[in-house]
Write a protein that binds this DNA or RNA. Structure first.
Length: 811
DNA sequence: GTAGGGTTAG
């Protein structure tokens, strides 16, 4: 509403619409009453408002004396004392023919944080035909920055150029900040470079602009340049410079600035003190922040908030909450919205959902909504505490969203394995005004990695390139992982080879990529190559390497590298490395050795460790070991669905139906539901999904006919399930129990008939492939003379000529 | 009567 108002009115020169002109006074009345209602809800911007008021008090007195009309004096007085509704009522009754009155009102609203309202007054000023002057724009720019994005900002700039105020130093300084805040730092630079005269504020604005656009390095360089040119920095320059150091997490520069602060005798300035605490916190030096904080005798809310924030971001959750208590008791300060926001990461770290809800409740009680940052922080907290419903509740209620809030919601979905929802949200984001950034892709790529197919992988790669997002190592590595997990190992390798600056993560990722595809030998040779190129392996390198050995069954190499971790690289194996070795032991069916290995491990076994033993016992049908492993898993992890399903299947295999029923009851009582198996396959750029449920409704007869033929050819007895033999309802029941109709086979059939002869067929599934389907797929690959690649929830199986790359071990 | 300011989200 307001956006259209501004964009419309900025384009017109003079009022040409009588009705608009006439409704103006009534609108102002509405505005005044809205302000009255909202006034108490607004966050008090105490320090800013008071300082400004104090600063202006001298001027106000002077102005009142200068004012000929008493109403101007009244207006000024109300504006400066923060009585905005009174001010607007005075304004409403005034003769508004001069620009001065309008400027005063716009300034008053802007200073109190009523940006939207300030812009409405500005719109009305244009409707009234009152020409702006050079004083009008700094306020309008400020309000516009707070409310709108770059398009509106550019319109204001055009207007400034049109009216000839583009050389005014105040206007230019405001424009520099405005462009930086709406994400166009290049425009800030252009304005700064073209300025004929610059003052310290211009330099501060540019430094500040770089900090706003999260480019700490440029802010530091700008500060240096300013000093070289002999411009003396003021306290604002130092504050922003400290912000730049915090952004870069550059402790060394931060300490240099700290020294400069002390040299200049500014260490007692509260503004600088809070920036320093924040900087130390962001650089991970919470002890430093704490020592500095303790030396401050008169602490205000901002200083406390900075300290609470420093504790919170450095995982000192208990200190975060004890500081909150101290702040209230010692200094009698009440938490504000920033305090609440700073507390939330500590709730996430503690997994304290209740505490997080309490903070949410307090914000509701204190009428703090809508608030973009608070809402985004709540989404983050709820996501990390595993409460997606509440994260969604906050997200869908948001009046305004930016890319950070979208990213928070996407991340919350991904963190909780709701990959489809994450991708749907990402698609919705693309339809709106927010533009995805690097963080969006860092968040969404793992979701694509989990559930997408190569075509979609390529599409997202193309989209990243289209947006001009630089392929830094972080994004490149996420993309290599994504390609590999989507089944496109070739693209993963191509991207890896094209990287100019590979880091150890890139090597770890590509080693793992070959590992999950069962190409253990390639993983090992990549590791040798990595060493030859001088990279130092880390703990994750060994996770990749050992996983690869276990997936490919490379017993000797597995043990060789496991033993070399500590000996050659000084790395103590962690639980994840023990897990890989247990997979390897399990693969070879040496259960005595495996149990001893667990007993002798220096670390406490987790459910992942016992799960590995359980999976091995399933492969070797060793029910005794399975029961032992399951027992341990249940004692550690009450809700392990996979464990229940596996155990129940094992009991079923040996006909222990009582035990099957017992496990199923257990699942029912704990509310655990078996994942519905589904498989996806790509054809002509479209993804087709097959599920283990309701198959009759989804698939066409032709797939079943093909499946019929194939099943017969590979010797699978399917007479009992023939599509033409039974009524649909009977067939559905029978199918539910038969692996012949598992979704993966339907997907393979569809793949075979809808792709060119000779092309490999690629299928992804959300569960592990069952033994029966694995056997069948081997036969199908031979019978159809096609390569069939099946990615299950853990690894890729490359079926070719009757064999599988996994060597028939994948449990 | 004009600009720039510390603590807040992924």
């Amino acid at each position: 509403m307001a956006t259209s108002l501004l964009s419309f009115h900025l384009q017109i020169e003079k009022p040409n619409n009588v009705s608009q002109y006439q409704i103006f006074p009534a609108k102002i009345q509405v505005l005044a009453s809205t302000l009255k209602q909202n006034h108490n809800r607004r966050p008090k911007i105490a320090t800013t408002a008071i300082t400004r008021k104090q600063r202006r008090s001298g001027r106000v007195k002077q102005s009142l004396e200068d004012c000929n009309t008493s109403s101007t004096g009244k207006l000024l007085s109300f504006l400066n004392s923060g009585c905005l509704n009174d001010a607007l009522q005075v304004f409403d009754k005034m003769n508004k023919s001069n620009t001065f009155i309008w400027n005063l009102t716009i300034r008053g609203l802007t200073d109190s944080g009523y940006f939207q309202e300030a812009l409405e007054v500005y719109c009305r000023m244009q409707i009234e035909g009152i020409r702006e002057d050079k004083f009008t724009f700094p306020f309008v720019i400020k309000a516009c920055t707070a409310v709108f994005g770059s398009d509106e900002a550019k319109k204001v700039h055009s207007r400034i150029i049109k009216l000839g105020f583009y050389e005014d130093i105040y206007v230019c300084n405001a424009l520099i900040i405005m462009y930086a805040k709406v994400g166009s730092i290049e425009n800030s630079e252009k304005i700064f470079d073209r300025m004929l005269v610059r003052d310290v504020v211009s330099w501060n604005s540019m430094i500040s602009g770089y900090v706003s656009s999260r480019d700490g390095l440029s802010s530091l360089m700008c500060f240096q340049k300013m000093q070289v040119l002999g411009i003396r920095p003021d306290r604002f320059s130092l504050v922003r410079l400290i912000g730049g150091c915090a952004l870069e997490q550059n402790l060394l520069s931060g300490k240099e600035v700290f020294a400069q602060v002390i040299r200049n005798g500014r260490e007692f300035n509260l503004m600088i003190q809070s920036s320093l605490i924040d900087m130390f916190g962001k650089c991970g030096e919470v002890n430093y922040a704490e020592r500095f904080f303790n030396r401050i005798s008169q602490k205000n809310l901002v200083v406390w908030n900075a300290m609470i924030g420093a504790y919170s971001m450095n995982h000192e959750s208990l200190k975060t909450f004890s500081s909150l208590k101290k702040m209230q008791e010692d200094d009698n300060l009440r938490p504000d919205i920033i305090t609440l926001i700073n507390l939330l990461p500590s709730c996430s770290k503690l997994g304290a959902l209740g505490l997080g809800k309490e903070i949410h409740g307090r914000a509701i009680k204190n009428d703090k909504f809508p608030h973009l940052v608070l809402e985004t922080s709540l989404i983050d907290m709820y996501g990390k505490c595993g409460s997606l419903i509440l994260a969604e509740f906050v997200f869908f209620q948001m009046k305004q969203k930016n890319i950070i809030s979208w990213n928070a919601m996407i991340t919350a979905y991904v963190q909780n394995s709701y990959n489809k929802e994450a991708i749907d949200t990402f698609k919705n984001l693309k339809n709106g005004p927010s533009v995805p950034d690097e963080t969006t892709f860092a968040s969404i790529l793992p979701a694509y990695a989990e559930i997408a197919l190569p075509k979609e992988g390529k599409q997202i790669h193309g989209y990243i390139s289209k947006l001009g997002i630089s392929l830094n190592t972080f994004i490149s590595n996420a993309m290599i992982h994504m390609y590999a997990k989507c089944g496109d190992l070739l693209s993963a390798r191509k991207l890896f080879d094209s990287m100019l600056f590979k880091d150890v993560v890139a090597w770890n990722t590509i080693i793992m990529a070959y590992g999950i595809h069962g190409f253990g030998v390639s993983s090992l040779s990549l590791f040798t190559e990595m060493l030859n190129e001088g990279y130092e392996p880390n703990r994750s390198t060994f996770v990749s390497l050992l996983s690869s050995c276990s997936i490919s069954g490379n017993w000797d190499e597995g043990w060789k590298y496991f033993n070399s971790m500590r000996r050659d690289y000084g790395l103590d194996p962690g639980i994840e490395h023990y897990g890989c070795m247990l997979d390897l032991l399990g693969r070879f069916g040496n259960f005595d050795c495996a149990k001893r290995f667990i007993e002798e491990m220096p670390l406490k076994p987790t459910s992942r460790i016992w799960g590995s033993l359980l999976a091995a016992s399933r492969h070797y049908r060793n029910i005794e070991v399975a029961e032992l492993a399951a027992d341990r898993i249940f004692s550690l992890d009450n809700d392990n669905t996979g464990c229940c399903v596996l155990l129940s299947n094992m009991y079923a295999d040996v006909g222990r139906w009582d035990d099957v029923a017992r496990v199923r009851d257990l699942m029912k009582n704990r509310g655990l539901e078996k994942t519905t198996g589904c498989s996806i396959v790509e054809c002509n750029g479209k993804t087709y999904k097959f599920t283990n449920k309701n198959r009759l409704k989804i698939e066409s007869d032709i797939i079943f006919q093909v499946l019929d033929i194939i099943s017969r050819k590979i010797g699978d007895d399917q007479d009992n399930y023939n599509v033409y033999t039974f009524k649909p309802s009977v067939l559905l029941k029978r199918r539910a129990k038969s692996p012949i109709f598992h979704s993966v086979r339907l997907a393979i059939c569809f793949g075979l008939i809808s792709t060119s002869v000779g092309d490999p067929v690629l299928v992804r599934m959300n569960t592990r492939i069952c033994e029966n389907c694995h056997k069948a797929t081997k036969k199908i690959s031979k019978m159809a003379n096609r390569e069939i690649i099946v990615g299950d929830s853990k690894i890729y199986h490359h079926f070719k000529n009757g064999c599988c790359s996994c060597g028939d071990y994948w449990r």
